[in-house]
Design a protein around this nucleic acid. Structure first.
Lengths: 238, 238
DNA sequence: AAGATAAAAACGAACGATCGCTCGGAAAAT
DNA sequence: ATTTTCCGAGCGATCGTTCGTTTTTATCTT
């Protein structure tokens, strides 16, 4: 699947994101008409990611946010109860959308190699389509409350366990070599995260998400087929 | 080289770190006696990383820092001019030490495979010994001023270019396959960063730095020898 | 169609709390 | 007795947040 096909089937626009936020907090949001509510949520959401991804959520003041969104400080508070709850609303909505997309994206494949490729590709395409949110979510997870922080961490570990499980299944079926599936999943995850954490770097080098996906899938398959992760005597040490 | 051997030859204690800070800012620091200066710098340095790595540097107040270090707010200002300059002092000293260690750690190897292994191992061992600083440096780079931020980014890119150069040399000498050395270096770098960004995860799973190093070196060699990164027709797509 | 009325949305000055930081004097060391 | 180190109340600035008011939009009346 190409990135173009992916974005066509998945609804991941800024508007979709804010509809999710509105639905989850309809009674807390003071605006009566959905039309205006979504419109202003979009302005606030975009401004939050823009300012926050540049200087950090803590360093962003409500006056910064007001200037960047074009909405007065007082009016913004019709859409969230506090700065902290704004952070939680954004994290929560994104986590829900990402979870939903991931679940249905990997539902097609059968054999472990294809499943592995599908999972990698789905994660990369998703994080490409929602890059500002993924970056935000990663960098600001520390500022969440205990409950929300635990949920964010759990979401991360679930992705990793999912990949590890695919590798394990491949080993049982004999299509993968006897590699450390947990360490393998960990480093694959590291590569996936690098895409949204350092996207400016890849953009400057003109590396497309498809090319990066091909590359990571290639590395993952090579690793699983040849068993490079067993640290055997082929190792060269200094 | 084992991690134990590495830490024995490299001077990377907290005290060494603070001696570096003191030497760089001897005239700005109000304390006259080096003894007391280093002692208090250690308290401040440790408390800064402790509090900051948990809640973020911006969210850390000077009163937090005073409580965590056991030094009064007033006395702390005998050791730095402002909160921002404290951040810069820590970043600068760490960058200098890390650069020095890396330069001499990879000076021994000759052939590209050994050079690659040495570079990976040196970086991992270094980030293990200075893990709190590496984590801090990565997460707080956004809060630096323009000049310091550029220097931090340059340091990162230098590491990556170094790895890419080794792979390129290996290709020219025919010991490595025709792989994309830039993308290869990028994902190797991602694996290296994962070690200090997610160390709690590896600690819980009882993965030692040596085992992780063996694993990454194995993946890097496998990739370079078999050319998994060319995204050829062997790719399986969904 | 136009004016009156009510409802909804937007505003920004002002509030108490807390921030980074200073400074005059106390405490400790020499 | 002198120097060095340490202290923490207090300063102005700025923070997140509120709320009485104005402006805009929708609805009703003539």
């Amino acid at each position: 699947m190409t990135y173009r096909q992916f974005t066509r089937q998945a609804k991941l626009t800024r508007r979709d994101f804010c509809l999710e936020m509105l639905a989850a907090h309809r009674e807390d949001i003071k605006a009566k008409k959905d039309e205006t509510a979504v419109k202003n949520l979009e302005l606030i959401f975009q401004a939050t990611l823009e300012v926050s991804n540049q200087k950090g959520f803590q360093a962003m003041t409500m006056r910064d946010l007001s200037r960047a969104s074009g909405i007065s400080v007082g009016a913004m508070y019709d859409y969230f109860n506090s700065k902290e709850s704004l952070l939680e609303m954004i994290q929560e909505a994104g986590r829900r959308i990402a979870g939903r997309v991931m679940r249905q994206a990997v539902s097609g494949a059968e054999a472990p190699p294809e499943k592995l490729a599908a999972a990698i590709r789905a994660h990369l395409y998703l994080s490409e389509a929602m890059q500002p949110w993924f970056f935000f979510s990663y960098m600001e997870a520390r500022h969440l409350g205990k409950v929300e922080k635990q949920r964010a961490k759990e979401g991360e570990l679930a992705t990793e366990r999912h990949i590890a499980e695919i590798i394990r299944a491949g080993k049982r079926q004999g299509v993968f070599a006897d590699v450390d599936h947990r360490l393998g999943a960990a480093v694959i995850k590291a590569m996936l995260q690098d895409w949204y954490l350092k996207r400016w770097k890849y953009a400057k080098r003109r590396v497309s998400v498809e090319r990066y996906a091909d590359f990571v899938v290639g590395m993952a398959h090579g690793f699983c087929r040849n068993g490079l992760g067993d640290a055997g005597p082929r190792e060269v040490r200094q």
